[in-house]
């Protein structure tokens, strides 16, 4: 009993870390390989989760229709949810890229930050869209009838890991291709990449869309894991900031680092909970803030003392060129 309690705890931890690893991989395409400063990950997180939720759940009917509103409900299988999430996030990335990718890198940051806040506001305020602040529930879980409900997380862990591994190899392949080499060249030095501004713009756009699609899948994985989403989940803290810390900790420009960072930082994040449990009762309500304070300080320490992260950047491009 004791053992199964611990192991199910470890499994749930591994699933969340795996989902975050997917986000880190998506961010790594944008930041690690192209130098795009996206600080609105929470927005893609949110859209991915909601899109998949609405693709896979039926339109509420009967008495539910009075309480649950959503703009559509397609009742399609899980895989369609993942794909839909990726596509919608790709479209949003395209829209945000158009006004910003020609400008300096910080404009993208401000714009993505703004879009993330705006998306959260929209989901919070528009009841008809996805049930407003109460959010959506009961997203279907694939293969849920195969095992008993208390053991289902093992299945979902496998699904998460498979998704993570497929995405990992897809990115590795893309990065080693000529396309990936151009991305690197853009990140290193835009001017001398011997390309027209239009080409640079197109490559950045492709990278932004690719990374955002991966984030959409991450959002979908999250929705079907927790089976309950609401706008309050997709805050800058949980949805953006911690992912940045993970990637910087693991090593940007390194897909293994992105995954490692997700597991390490999620481990630290969960670990800090054990520490704050020792706080006096009066301080318990402040515990999450103390934990985030620690994560914030950790980021600054990484930036100053180990900007390359745990693993550092893989120099795969130059290896190929030699």
């Amino acid at each position: 009993m004791e053992f199964s309690g611990i192991s199910s705890y470890v499994v749930s931890l591994a699933i969340m870390a795996g989902i975050y690893a997917v986000f880190c991989l998506g961010l790594n395409i944008q930041w690690g390989y192209t130098g795009l400063f996206n600080i609105g990950i929470a927005g893609f997180f949110c859209i991915g989760a909601y899109t998949s939720a609405m693709i896979t759940t039926p339109m509420p009917s009967g008495i539910y229709a009075q309480y649950v509103h959503q703009i559509f409900g397609l009742n399609l299988p899980f895989v369609f949810g993942l794909m839909g999430a990726a596509i919608v996030c790709g479209v949003v990335a395209l829209l945000i890229g158009i006004p910003t990718l020609r400008l300096g890198e910080d404009y993208l940051a401000i714009a993505t930050l703004g879009i993330a806040e705006t998306i959260r506001l929209i989901f919070n305020n528009e009841q008809w869209l996805a049930n407003g602040p109460r959010g959506l529930m009961d997203m279907p879980q694939p293969f849920h009838s195969v095992v008993s409900p208390q053991n289902y997380n093992y299945i979902y862990l496998i699904i998460t890991v498979i998704a993570m591994v497929i995405i990992y190899f897809a990115i590795e392949k893309a990065i080693r291709s000529p396309w990936g080499r151009v991305l690197r060249a853009i990140r290193e030095d835009e001017g001398s990449a011997s390309m027209s501004g239009k080409d640079v713009f197109n490559f950045k756009m492709q990278s932004l869309i690719f990374g955002s699609m991966v984030m959409g899948i991450g959002g979908a994985l999250y929705a079907h894991y927790t089976k309950a989403i609401s706008p309050s989940v997709f805050t800058p803290l949980y949805g953006t900031f911690i992912i940045w810390v993970m990637l910087m900790a693991g090593g940007s420009g390194n897909n293994k680092g992105a995954i490692l960072g997700a597991y390490v930082i999620w481990g630290i994040w969960v670990g800090t909970k054990f520490v704050t449990d020792f706080l006096p009762y009066t301080l318990q309500s402040r515990a999450p803030y103390i934990r985030f304070l620690i994560i914030g300080i950790l980021l600054e320490v990484i930036l100053i003392y180990r900007p390359q992260g745990l693993l550092g950047e893989e120099k795969k491009i130059s290896k190929l060129l030699d």
């Binding site: 940051a109 803290l237 994560i295 914030g296 600054e300 930036l303």
Partner: peptide, 12 residues
């Protein structure tokens, strides 16, 4: 960009 990221950390 790194400085901007550090400022994001500082804001939190």
């Amino acid at each position: 960009v790194i400085l901007a990221m550090a400022s994001l950390g500082a804001s939190f």
